[in-house]
Design a protein around this nucleic acid. Structure first.
Length: 482
DNA sequence: TTTTGAGTTGTTCGA
DNA sequence: GTCGAACAACTCAAA
């Protein structure tokens, strides 16, 4: 390279698809040298968990947005196909880059890959640095007095809150210095992330992937739902949750940014008595931290239960049950509504996730991993840490798990959290004309009521595949056996 | 080392 | 209809 042309730095984008508060990008910019943003598609490096169909759809949109945002700063996104290390080295050869920066990931396969890449790059005399861009605290920064990882959320969260103040988010760079020539990039379409048959119209209606969509969603949440969060977050018919989960997973908004802006919002909230709602919301960020803490310290949990005793659990691999559950054909309206919301929008309300998960692992006695895999493929917010914690919590085999006798009653839950059936009717049009009284348990409805509502059990809406009272007793027996 | 207190999200039963 | 207790015992975290 000519002496008057400083070597560029590569910024390896992965699950940090934003310019705001991006420490790896900031580190590259601060060197004062040209910056080359790179994304490398390498699903074969994700172990047993390559991105599912809904995630790939999201990723396509998000990469497109990121490229647009980079172009506004005078840069662009260079897209390549893996192996990651090989492509990084190739780019180094092509551009004369002398440094690679990235923000950390915490999945076992990603850690192994990144550790290897860092070692290899450094062996060749390159600068290779990773940063914390995805968590409030690194998983190893939070520990019990005995320097061990936490396994109970409340204790974990107390410890987090007692740590010194987290750093403030860093603003996006105003401009990026371009290299003399841009290395070649393959067109985004060649990654074939989008489905060949277009089933994504529901996703398009529901979401705006990318940093702009993330910030818009967050702002809207702070202005509207945040001040009632503690209560309305449990009502699936209402827009009571932040819906930031996919944006957080892809790093389109940083947890530090969220933390910081909620702190700024709290004084106002205190005057109106809404502060506790903000704290409850931050606690949810805490659960995200806790999930990453657990996956980092117990990397086997993506495949096997944290409580090894549960490997003996007599799960039932009934294909027909699983298919009925996946398709929203269990005959339990709240379960079916949730599964159809998932299929249609790539997302499911958290309250309903708990209900459908409890139903799958307790009423149907299916292995928790079969639910985890379905969620992995269909959720736009599929995240190995969160998904693993959620399913193991529901199945009772994970950290801070629900006691085994806590088996959600799908009818009681439905009545409690969707009393007027707004959510049920939204996703189950075939039941829409049933009066509230029978909507939550149509099998109890008198024949004339069903007829009036155009419901033909077993034809227009499935008979329930199990009797909850019977299934509950069966589950209690199964749990006693281990 | 031992002890003690505590633990996201529920349901059912009986008064 | 509403309320409190029992569910059955376990594990973690901290004193």
């Amino acid at each position: 390279m000519p002496q008057n042309s400083p070597a560029p730095s590569l910024v390896w984008f992965r699950q940090d698809l934003r310019l705001d508060d991006n420490p790896a990008l900031t580190a590259a910019v601060e060197r004062g040298c040209p910056v080359i943003p790179v994304f490398i598609w390498a699903p074969q490096e994700e172990g047993a968990w390559p991105p599912g169909a809904a995630s790939r759809w999201w990723l396509h949109q998000s990469l497109q947005r990121l490229d647009g945002d980079l172009r506004d700063k005078g840069a662009r996104l260079v897209i390549r196909e893996g192996p990651s290390l090989g492509q990084l080295q190739k780019l180094i050869d092509e551009t004369g880059a002398d440094a690679v920066f990235w923000n950390r990931r915490y999945e076992p396969a990603a850690i192994a890959r990144d550790t290897d890449a860092k070692k290899e790059l450094r062996t060749h005399g390159l600068v290779a640095e990773s940063f914390n861009g995805n968590l409030l605290f690194e998983p190893w920064e939070v520990a019990t007095r005995e320097k061990k990882p936490f396994q109970v959320f409340t204790a974990f969260w107390r410890a987090v809150l007692s740590l010194p103040e987290r750093e403030d988010p860093v603003a996006a760079p105003t401009s990026l210095r371009a290299p003399k020539t841009w290395p070649a990039s393959i067109p985004l379409d060649t990654l074939r992330l989008e489905p060949r048959i277009d089933w994504a119209s529901g996703l398009r209606e529901a979401w705006q992937p990318g940093a702009a969509g993330a910030n818009q969603r967050f702002e809207q949440f702070l202005n509207q739902a945040a001040s009632r969060y503690k209560i309305t977050r449990d009502l699936p018919a209402e827009p009571g949750t932040s819906r930031l989960s996919p944006h957080l997973h892809f790093g389109e908004i940083s947890p530090r940014r969220i933390w910081h802006d909620v702190q700024g919002w709290l004084p106002l909230a205190r005057r109106t008595g809404a502060a506790e709602h903000g704290e409850t919301f931050l606690k949810e960020l805490g659960w995200r931290e806790f999930a990453h803490h657990l996956l980092f310290h117990f990397p086997h949990t993506a495949e096997r239960p944290l409580r090894s005793r549960f490997e003996q659990f007599p799960a039932d691999n009934n294909r027909q049950y699983l298919t009925a559950w996946q398709r929203g054909q269990t005959g339990y309206p709240i379960v079916d509504a949730g599964m159809r919301e998932l299929w249609h929008t790539g997302w499911m309300h958290n309250r309903v996730r708990m209900i459908v998960a409890s139903f799958l692992v307790k009423d149907l006695l299916a292995p928790w991993s079969s639910g985890a895999k379905w969620f992995w493929d269909t959720l736009v917010d599929a995240d190995l840490a969160n998904n693993t914690l959620g399913w193991q919590w529901s199945a009772g085999c994970g950290a801070d798990a629900a006691p085994f006798f806590r088996i959600f009653n799908p009818v009681t839950q439905s009545r409690k959290f969707d009393p007027h059936g707004v959510y049920l009717r939204r996703w189950l049009p075939e039941l829409a004309s049933l009066p509230d009284k029978w909507l939550h348990e149509p099998w109890q409805a008198p024949a004339n009521v069903l007829q009036l509502a155009d419901v033909v059990p077993g034809r227009t809406y499935p008979d329930r595949i199990v009797d909850h009272d019977v299934a509950r007793k069966r589950a209690l027996e199964a749990f006693k056996s281990i």
